[in-house]
Computed example of a mutant assay.
Amino acid sequence: MTTAGTAVHSPDFSAGVQLLADLRNEITRADTKATVLAGVLSMSAGLLGGLLTSSRSPGVLSALAGALWWTGLLAHVIAQLALLLAVMPRYRRSRWRPGVPLTYFGDIRRASRSGRLGTALTETGPATTDGLLTALAETSRIVAHKHLWIRAGLIAFGCASLLLPGSLLVN
């Protein structure tokens, strides 16, 4: 059995700390990508509004062109929602209880509300590896969800980018 000091200086622990830092950087990059893409989508929504007020409104499109237009508009809305979901903070219910290491702010809040924050911090020190493993699992879950919503948003935006102009060409 290793002591907490030995575990903190082990190669496995150092690799875990590096992975956690990389995951946190990836969360920041994913949030930045999704925010920029949401901004681009918002600007393109302004262009769509301009198209609606022009002489080529959806009401004067043929049946096929109208179907393409409304499908493209739906894809645009789905893309916007997906990118907003990508940047939405991901919280989980704190599962902290006495004897379990603190791993994120929800655990700290729960320990504080129960009046056990000092004890929890003391117990977390020796259980650093357990806390690191929990933090790695939770952070990787957050990254996976963000990437899922960014991919969904990009696919929907790609569809909208083809369908909306295509509806005007088919007419």
Rank of each mutant, 00 (worst) to 15 (best):
T2P: 09
A4V: 06
A4C: 10
G5C: 07
V8M: 10
S10M: 10
S10Q: 08
P11I: 12
D12A: 14
F13N: 02
S14F: 07
S14G: 09
A15R: 14
Q18F: 03
Q18R: 15
L20W: 06
D22L: 12
N25V: 01
N25E: 11
R29E: 08
A30S: 05
A34C: 11
V36R: 15
A38D: 03
G39N: 12
G39W: 05
V40N: 10
V40Q: 06
V40L: 15
L41K: 01
L41M: 14
S42D: 14
M43A: 13
M43R: 15
M43G: 15
S44V: 04
A45N: 07
G46A: 08
L48M: 12
G49W: 01
G50H: 10
G50Y: 12
L51R: 04
T53P: 02
S54W: 12
S55Q: 11
R56W: 13
P58C: 09
A67M: 05
L68T: 00
W69K: 00
W70F: 13
W70D: 02
G72Y: 03
L73E: 05
L74V: 07
A75D: 01
I78S: 03
L81C: 11
A82T: 12
L84R: 03
A86C: 06
W96G: 01
P98S: 11
L102S: 01
T103A: 07
I108L: 09
R113H: 07
R116G: 05
R116T: 14
G118T: 15
T119P: 03
E123N: 10
P126A: 06
A127N: 13
T128Q: 13
D130H: 13
G131P: 02
L132P: 01
L133N: 09
T134L: 08
A135L: 03
A137L: 13
T139V: 06
I142K: 12
K146F: 04
L148A: 10
I150S: 00
G153T: 06
G153S: 04
G153N: 01
I155N: 02
A156C: 08
F157K: 02
A160D: 00
L163T: 02
L164P: 00
G166C: 09
L168C: 08
L168W: 12
L168I: 11
L169Y: 13
L169F: 10
V170G: 04
